[in-house]
Amino acid sequence: MALSDADVQKQIKHMMAFIEQEANEKAEEIDAKAEEEFNIEKGRLVQQQRLKIMEYYEKKEKQVELQKKIQSSNMLNQARLKVLKVREDHVRSVLDEARRRLGEVTKNPTEYRVVLQKLIVQALYQTMEAKVILRCRQVDLALVNEVLPPSVEQYKANIGKDVVISVDTENFLPPDTCGGVELIALNGRVKVPNTLESRLELISQQLVPEIRNALFGTNPNRKFTD
């Protein structure tokens, strides 16, 4: 039975509607899949950037923390250095006060005469030469000439050797020296300073740790005391 034109048109429309429906469904499926893939990719990119941001700020935080530690360490070291400087200045002031009091010894001729003789004999023990030159302050010249003979006799009695001492009357010790003498032997190759300052310096090297302990107490971090 032959189809009429109306039937053909109807079937064509039916086929077109079916094709259009399938096309729409396919388009919706593609849209849905594209939307899903878009959301997945968007989530991946967002997570990736979030991790990068977190990593960046974690790195920054570590840098800031490290900088804080470095600054704290520097400030602590500076504070320690300031404390040490103040302590050393205080120790130095104690030694300066000791030096000032040493100068007062020379104001008492009787006491200074005994000290001067001991200083001369001690210097002779260090030179152990037969001929020496003695230098002193110009203000001590008369007192030195006075104690020189007993000093030589004491040296000879203890050592059993003679010594000739020439007092240098052209080159004196500086006037701001506290007192004492300097012996020269072997044409200037040997010099033995035995002034009150040199004795103080020698003693202070041994006593500075004790002075620190007396002023500031024992350092708990010090393992050795020698």
Results as ranks from 00 to 15, higher is better:
K60D: 13
K62P: 06
Q63N: 12
V64L: 15
L66S: 14
L66N: 12
L66M: 15
L66V: 10
Q67M: 14
Q67R: 12
K69L: 12
K69V: 13
Q71M: 13
S73M: 13
N77H: 08
Q78M: 13
A79E: 15
A79L: 10
L81K: 08
L81G: 07
L84F: 12
V86D: 14
D89R: 07
H90D: 08
L95N: 06
R99L: 10
R100W: 08
R100P: 02
R100K: 13
R101N: 09
R101G: 03
R101V: 07
R101A: 12
G103Q: 02
E104H: 09
E104M: 07
V105C: 06
T106R: 15
T106C: 10
P109H: 04
T110V: 14
Y112M: 07
Y112A: 07
I120M: 06
I120P: 01
V121A: 04
V121R: 04
V121T: 04
L124E: 01
Y125Q: 05
Q126P: 03
T127W: 03
T127G: 01
M128D: 10
R135K: 08
V139G: 01
L141Q: 03
L143N: 02
N145H: 05
N145R: 10
L148T: 00
L148D: 00
Q154R: 14
Y155P: 01
Y155L: 02
